[in-house]
C-alpha cells in the first residue's frame, strides 16, 4: 500500500506501484486538472509540484512519490487566486486551455525557485511546456506580471 499526500489529503494505492502518477491522479483519484499530452516528459501538460519542484507526472510513478506531498492545479490555491492564476486571467492567456494547468504549475514552481526571473529566464524556464495554440507571448508576460505583483 502506497501512501501519498495530494493537495493536503492522504491517498493510498495498492495497485501497480509503477503506475504513472498522471493516471493515478486522473483516473483513480479523479483529479482531472492535470493533463496528458505526450506521456514522455516532452510537453509539460502533466506538470505537478512535488515538494516544491515541478515534476512531469507522466514519467513519475506513484511509488516515486510515496510519502511525499503532491500539489496539482486543483490544490494550487483554495480559490484559484495564486498570483500566477490571477496574472493568467488578467492577460487572457489561454486559447484552448489544455496546456494551461501544466504551464501554471511550471510557472508557480519557477517563481518559487526564482521570484524575479528575467524575460530570458522565463523563456528558458518555461521551454519544457508546449502550447500548441501558441500562447507563449502571453504566458511569458503573465509570468513576468505574477513576479512583479498582480
Amino acid at each position: 500500500m502506497i501512501k501519498v499526500k495530494i493537495n493536503g489529503q492522504e491517498q493510498s494505492w495498492d495497485g501497480d506501484p509503477d503506475l504513472p502518477l498522471l493516471w493515478f491522479l486522473r483516473d483513480e483519484a479523479g483529479l482531472t486538472g492535470t493533463k496528458y499530452g505526450c506521456g514522455q516528459a516532452l510537453c509539460g501538460a502533466c506538470t505537478v509540484i512535488v515538494d516544491k519542484q515541478a515534476v512531469r507526472a507522466c514519467i513519475t510513478s506513484v511509488n516515486d512519490v510515496a510519502g511525499r506531498e503532491v500539489t496539482t492545479i486543483e490544490g494550487l490555491h483554495p480559490n484559484g487566486d495564486h498570483p500566477v492564476q490571477k496574472a493568467w486571467r488578467q492577460l487572457n492567456v489561454p486559447q484552448c486551455g489544455f496546456c494551461q494547468a501544466g504551464q501554471i504549475m511550471q510557472a508557480a514552481a519557477l517563481l518559487m525557485d526564482n521570484p524575479k526571473p528575467s524575460h530570458d529566464q522565463i523563456r528558458e524556464g518555461m521551454a519544457g511546456n508546449i502550447c500548441r495554440c501558441g500562447c507563449y507571448q502571453r504566458i511569458e508576460n503573465a509570468v513576468h506580471l505574477a513576479s512583479t505583483g498582480v
Partner: peptide
C-alpha cells in the same frame, strides 16, 4: 472558461 481553465476545472473530452 477563463476561471475554470486556470483552476483545472474546465472539462475536456479526456476529463
Amino acid at each position: 472558461d477563463l476561471h475554470d481553465i486556470t483552476t483545472g476545472k474546465a472539462h475536456y473530452g479526456a476529463d
